[in-house]
Amino acid sequence: MKLRLFPQETAGLQALARMAEQILAGTHTLAELLGAGRGDFAALTETLRRQDAASTADFAALLTRMRTSFINPLPREDLYALGRLLNETSEILTGAGEIIELYALDRTPARISDQLEILSRQAELTTAAMRNLNDLDSLEDYWLEVLRLGKRADHTHRVLVAELLEAHSPATFTKYSTLAGQFAAASRQMRAVATQVGSIIVKES
C-alpha cells in the first residue's frame, strides 16, 4: 500500500458507499416485489425509482467532489468508473421492477429468486467494500468472492433460460427471460465493480 503524505477528501468515498447501499436496498425491494401481489407492484416499483434517484444524486455529488477537491482518495478515473458502474446498477434494478409491474409477473420461477439471492450477496459484499476503500489491503477477498459469485450467477442464468424455453410458450418465455436478463446484467455490473477494485488494488500496491 502506498504511503499517503497528505490528508484526503473522503466525501467521494462516502458517496460511493451510499450508492452501494442503494443497490443493496434495491435487491431487498425486488425480493418484496417477487413475493407481492399485483396491487403492491406500483408502490414497490416507485420505491425502486426513489432509490435510483438517490443513487444518481450521490453520483452527481461524487463528480462535484472530484472536480473541486485538490487531493482525492483514489485516482479520479477510478472514482468515476466505480460511481458509473454503481449508478448503472441501480438503473438496472429499477428496470427489473418495472418489468415485474408492466408484465404483471406475480408468479416467477424459483430460479429467478436464486438469481436475486446471488445478486443480493454481491451487493452486500460490495457495500462493505465501498465502506472500506481507504483500506485496499483488506479488499482482495471481496474481489475474488464477487468474481466467484458472478460465475455462479452466469451459470444460474444459463440454466434458467434453458428451463424457460422448455416449459413456457414464446410469450411467457419472453417475459420471464427479460426479467432474468435484468438480474444477470446487474450481477455482471457487480462483477465489474469488483474488477475495478481489483485494478485499484494492483495499481496502489
Rank of each mutant, 00 (worst) to 15 (best):
T174P: 00
I201C: 06
D135K: 09
L24Y: 07
G83W: 01
A171L: 15
R121A: 08
E77N: 13
G39I: 03
T68M: 09
T127L: 00
P7L: 02
N132E: 12
L116Y: 08
H28K: 15
M66R: 12
T127G: 00
D78T: 01
R4T: 08
Q22H: 09
R188K: 15
L62S: 11
T156N: 15
M19L: 03
H155G: 01
L34W: 07
A60T: 07
L147V: 10
L24K: 02
A129H: 08
N72E: 09
L133F: 04
L3C: 06
A192P: 05
L147R: 14
L13Y: 04
S187F: 02
Q51S: 04
A36C: 04
N72Y: 04
A11N: 09
L86N: 05
G12I: 01
F173G: 02
Y176P: 02
L144E: 15
G37Q: 11
L24E: 13
T195E: 15
S113R: 15
R191L: 04
L119I: 08
E117P: 00
A42N: 06
G83Q: 00
T68V: 07
D52Y: 12
E88W: 12
L33E: 03
V146H: 02
F59Y: 12
H28I: 13
T47F: 00
A184I: 00
H155R: 10
E21I: 05
E140L: 14
Y142R: 14
A110V: 13
A171E: 13
A110N: 14
T10M: 11
G12R: 04
R131Y: 06
L74W: 09
G97H: 09
E124R: 14
G198L: 07
T195A: 14
S187C: 09
F173I: 04
L63G: 08
M190S: 11
D137M: 11
R49Q: 15
A186S: 08
A162V: 06
L139T: 08
A129S: 12
K175E: 09
H168I: 06
A153K: 11
R84P: 02
L164S: 01
I100N: 06
V159M: 07
T45A: 02
L44M: 03
V193Y: 06
M19N: 00
A184T: 01
L149W: 05
A42Y: 05
G39F: 00
L34S: 04
F183R: 09
T108N: 14
E140M: 11
G37H: 08
L48I: 07
M190R: 05
A123D: 07
Q189R: 15
A53S: 14
I200T: 05
D40K: 00
G39P: 02
P73G: 00
L48G: 10
S205Y: 13
V197Y: 01
V161R: 01
